[in-house]
Amino acid sequence: MDRRTALQSLAGGTALALAGCTGRDSATSPTSSAGTSTGARTTEARTTTSATTVDLQSHTVTVTKRVEQGQRDLSRVVRIAARRAESTLTCPDGTEKTTSADLPDERWRAFERSVLAADPSRFASEYECSGSCPQDLPQTRLTLTVDGESTAVRIEAGAELPPELDAILADVESFETNLDEPSCE
């Protein structure tokens, strides 16, 4: 690792430590022409693609969000793919309840572009909260699949996220709020 990359990694770790759990849109990881550094890994440099220049015809995008609440034995999986949002709730007794809805073409295309432009392969495998973190909130697991290549990301409540990942998560949560909420009762 060259000196510049090492200093950027150190600065990124310091910024994350200082940012604590103040919100999702504070400190971000540094980027250099030598590569991208995060608290969990370093990847090779990539060519940045604008969300408006992505060719949607040649790509397949799926994003899955899983939240498990161990104390109540509940899990909720939200899957966004092919202009459709689907939510499956697994109840403590093992039954599954599913609801789904079609997404408006404009919203789907914007979401698909943002996932492709973000290049999910550069995200760290986990984002942990540092400092004073909520202990009673479940972890979120995102799986971002582009053209059959999957990237799994574990996110602790209150963790700092790169802006692109934060935007993808916010979109998934927005789609989720538009679904009828299944219940175990």
Rank of each mutant, 00 (worst) to 15 (best):
M1Y: 13
T5S: 11
A6T: 13
L7V: 10
S9Y: 14
L10S: 11
G12S: 15
T14S: 05
L16E: 12
A17G: 07
G20Y: 00
R24W: 01
D25Y: 04
S26P: 05
T31V: 15
T31I: 15
A40F: 11
R41E: 10
T42D: 05
T43I: 14
R46W: 13
T47K: 09
T47S: 00
T48K: 09
S50V: 04
T52W: 11
T53H: 05
V54Q: 08
D55I: 10
S58K: 14
T60N: 02
T62D: 11
V63A: 04
V63G: 05
K65I: 01
R66Y: 04
R66Q: 15
R66E: 15
V67P: 03
R72K: 13
R72S: 07
R76D: 04
R76C: 01
V77G: 07
A82D: 15
A82K: 10
R83W: 03
T88H: 08
T88M: 01
C91E: 00
G94S: 06
K97M: 02
T98V: 10
T99P: 06
S100D: 14
R107D: 14
W108M: 05
S114Q: 13
L116S: 10
A117H: 10
A117M: 09
A117L: 13
A124E: 03
S132Q: 11
D136I: 08
D136Q: 08
D136V: 12
P138A: 02
R141C: 02
L142A: 04
T143A: 00
L144C: 09
V146C: 01
G148K: 12
G148Y: 14
S150N: 10
S150V: 02
T151R: 12
R154P: 02
I155C: 00
G158M: 04
E160M: 06
E176I: 13
T177E: 04
L179Y: 00
D180F: 00
D180V: 12
E181T: 15
C184K: 06
E185C: 06
